[in-house]
Simulated assay, not measured.
Amino acid sequence: MNKSMLITWNIRGLCRWEKKVVVRKLVTRTKSKIVFLQETKLRSVEVKTISQLCGRRCNFEFKFSASVGAAGGLISCWDSSFFSNERCVIEQNFIGLIGKYAGSDLKCALINVYGPNVASERRVFFDRLATLISKIELPVLIGGDFNIVRNAEEKIGASFNKKSMAVFSEFIEGLTLIDPPLRGSFHLVELQGSTIIQQTG
């Protein structure tokens, strides 16, 4: 499999044109095949929106989860010449794409996440996500903003909910997921020939 780029970014609102231009420049520069955006704050997404984000001359398909008021909102885009989506699961806090890489029999799941900010909702969220991953029984790649860290050192100057941190660690360890180390404001990971970029701030 050729090296390909996946971008996952908490965009903190996509209503302004300037934000869309920044995303498009990044997608163009990195030649990304998959784009996960969180906290779009959009209640609807059209083909025109994806063209503004990924360029007019592209084969990008998309799924979205609408924001609730001005909170949340997810967009998952993928180049159909790279990934073929067969089915999807869309909920308020995640979009799960299930399909295979084009030109191969390698099936997998790609999950875009924006976790709840309310501590009391996190256990239900992680249980629901763990159930989905366990049922599909496929290699899975998860990107996004969980709105929680595993260690206090990962976010300086913030208050922490130790119970939520424990729930997050239990989720990762229970599914034997790999949690890549944070480097500056991005995650840079080589995984199955794909590089994941996650902007955290």
Rank of each mutant, 00 (worst) to 15 (best):
K48H: 13
I50N: 10
S51C: 03
S51M: 11
Q52E: 14
Q52V: 05
L53W: 01
L53R: 05
G55R: 09
G55H: 04
R56Y: 04
R57A: 07
R57Q: 13
C58I: 01
N59I: 02
N59H: 14
N59S: 11
F60W: 05
F60H: 05
K63P: 01
A66N: 14
S67D: 05
V68S: 14
V68K: 15
G69H: 11
G69W: 09
A70E: 13
A71W: 09
G72D: 06
G72N: 09
G73I: 13
L74G: 07
L74Q: 10
L74M: 11
C77H: 07
S80V: 07
S80R: 15
S81V: 10
S81Q: 14
F82A: 06
F83W: 15
S84N: 11
S84V: 13
N85K: 13
N85V: 12
E86W: 10
E86P: 00
E86R: 14
R87Y: 12
V89P: 00
I90V: 15
E91N: 12
Q92L: 09
Q92Y: 08
N93G: 01
F94S: 08
F94G: 02
F94P: 07
I95N: 10
L97S: 03
I98M: 06
I98R: 12
G99E: 08
Y101F: 15
A102P: 02
A102I: 14
A102Y: 04
A102E: 14
G103W: 10
D105R: 15
D105K: 15
D105P: 01
D105M: 08
D105F: 03
L106Y: 14
K107L: 04
K107Q: 11
K107S: 04
K107H: 15
C108N: 10
C108A: 10
A109Y: 00
A109C: 11
A109E: 05
L110Q: 08
N112G: 02
N112H: 06
Y114E: 12
G115Y: 00
P116W: 07
N117I: 02
V118A: 06
S120E: 14
R122P: 01
R122N: 06
R123V: 10
R123S: 10
V124C: 09
V124P: 01
V124F: 04
F125N: 02
F125P: 03
F125Q: 01
D127N: 13
D127I: 00
R128C: 11
R128W: 04
R128F: 03
